[in-house]
Design a protein around this nucleic acid. Sequence first.
DNA 1: CGGGGGTCGT
DNA 2: ACGACCC
Length: 629
Amino acid sequence: MEARKAPARKDNVIIIHFDYDCFYASVFEAKNPALRSLPFAVQQKQIIVTCNYEARRRGLHKLQLIKDARRICPDVIIELGEDISRFRDASKELYGFIKSFSWNDKIERLGFDEVWMDVTDMVEWNMSCLNRNNLQDSFFQISKDNPTAGFQFDATAIAGHPYPKNYVHESTAQVDDLTLRLRLGSHIALYLRHQLEQHKGYTSTVGISTTKLVSKLAGNLNKPKGQTTVMPPLSDVDDEPSNVTKFMDDHEIGKVPGIGFKLAQKLREFALQRPAEIDPGLVYGGTKERVTVADLRTHPDVNSEMLEKLLSGPGSPHGIGYKIWCLLHGVDDTEVSSARAVPRQISIEDSYIRLDTMPELIKELMILSKSLLTRMRIDLLGSDDDFEPANEEGEVGNGTDLVKAVSVVGKKWLAHPKTLRLTTRPRQPLQPDGTRVRSFKRISHSGPLPNFVFNLNDTIERLADKLVNEALISMFRKLHPEKAGWNLSLVNLAVTNMSEAAGQSKTANGRDISNMFRKQEDVLKDFRVTDKSPFSPPKAKISGDAQDLSTTQRNGNHSEAREEDDVVPAKKGIEEAENVMFDADEDGETGWDDGDGEDDMDECCDECGLRMPAFAMVAHRRFHLQNAD
DNA sequence: CGGGGGTCGT
DNA sequence: ACGACCC
C-alpha cells in the first residue's frame, strides 16, 4: 500500500519549454518568407523530414516518402536538408537569443528545436514587485538592473491556454502564490515567443509548468504557435486527482519522455497481459495499441517496486521502477541544466547504399574528417577575449571536397577532446534466400585523438589526410579485421572526452561576468519600453470562451502573425490549433515598442536615482520597499 | 535502410 | 564499448 502512494512533488520552480514550429522548414522560411504561404517540405534521402503547415493542410506529414508526398500534393516545393549545418547554426542562434534573456543561464537544448528555460528567478523577482491590490496593471521586469525594460501585463489571467481547458481563474483577492507564479511564467513565455518571432522570424509552441516533463508535454496541447500552462491543483488531494495527474493520464505510455520504445513495449505487455503488437516502423500513425498512463497508474498491481522488477534487467539503470512511477505521476525533479560553453561530443556521419572497398572507404573517411575538423574549429575555438565560441561560417559540403576557411586568427581552443571514435554500421550479408536481415547495430572503436589536429597553422585538408592515415585506418582494421567482405551502411566519426582549456570553467556560467552584462545590455537596449502614454490596462478580448481571457498582453502591430492567427482550424484532422497569441488591440495601442527612440524617463527614483517612466516607477518603489532591510 | 545528430548510464 | 533514451 505504501508503495502505491503518489511520489511527492516539489513545484518550486517555473520552467518554460520551447519547441520551434516545423523547425527545418522554418529555417528555409526565415531566409525566404515567400515559402510560408506555399506547401513546402524538407527532404533527407527518400523522405520528407518536416513540412510547413500549409503542406500539412494539404495532407503531407513528417517522415513521408517523397513519392507519396508528390502524389498527394504535386505543388509541393521541396528542398534538400541533408546538410544540417544550417539547422545547427539556426538552432544555436535561437538558443543564444533565448539565453540572452535568462538571468541564471539555466537553459538547455534538446535536439535542434527544443529548449527548456528555468525562469524561477525572474518570476520570483516579479512576484515581489506585484501590487496584490491591482494585479491587472502589472509590469514584468525582464532585466534585474533596468526597471524600465519589460512589459505590461494582466496578472489576474493566464497568457495563452490553460490546462484544463475549462479552467477558471480564481478571484483576484485570495489567489495562491503557485497560481500566480504560473501566470507570470505564462506571460514571460508569451513575451519571449513574441521576441523570437519579431527578431528572428521563428514561431514556437510552448509549455509552462513546474517540471521539464510536464512543460514539454503541455506544449503539445496547442500546436502550432500556441502555449499551454498546466494550472493547480498540481498535487492529488486524497482521492481527487490533480490536474497534473489528469493531464498525464491521457498520454499513451510511449509518448512520455523517458519511456522509450523498449520500456513502452514491456509496460504494454504487462497491461495487456500478452506480447504487445509490434509497431511496423514506417507506417505513420500505425495501429499501435493504446496503453495509457492511467491504465498503469491505476492498475492495482502497479507500484514502484513492481515496476522495478518488471523493468530491470541487464544494463538497466538502478531505480528505474521508481523513476517510471514518478513519470506516471508527472513527477520529475531533474533540473534544467546550465548552459555549457562546449558540447560533450562532436560527431559527423553519413549513410551509404554500398561501401565495401578500401579506396572508397578512405575517400569517405577523408570527407568526414574534413567535416569533423571544421566543426571542431567552429564549435571549440573561441576568441581569446570572447565569451562565445567563434562560430564562424565554415562549411563542408558533405558531398563535395570544398572547404571554406574558418577564421582562426586570435582564436584558441576552449576544449581539447581527448578521444577519437570511429563507428560503423555493418550491413548484414545476404541470406541464402536472397533477402537481407536489417540491422541497425553499430560497432565502434575509440583511441586517443592525435594532438596534431589542434594545429591551427596546418590546413584542414592536410590534417584530415594525417588523421585518416595515422589513426583512422588502423582503427578501422580493429573494427573490421577481415580484408574484405564488409559492407557499411553507415560511418560515424566523433571526438569526445572534452577536457577544458586551462582557466576555463566548463559551463558558460560565470566565465566572464562583465561580458555577460554587456551581452544582456546589447539585447535589451532594443526592447526598452518607450510607451509615452500613461498606462492604461489592456482589455481582454470579449467572449464567453475562457481561453479568450488569456490574451492579456498588449502587443505591437503584428500583421504576419495576425493573418495566421485568424485562420480558424479546418475541420479535417489537421493539427492546426486555434491560436490566441498576438491579437492586436483594436485601438492599435502598443504595450511595448521595439523602436529605436529615446526612452521617456519621466520620473527619477528618490532611493537610487534611476530614471524611468512613471508606470515602471510603481513597481520599482515597491522593489525598494521589499528590499528595505 | 529512417537523417544526422545528441545525452546519460552500465 | 555499447545500449538506452531524446530530437
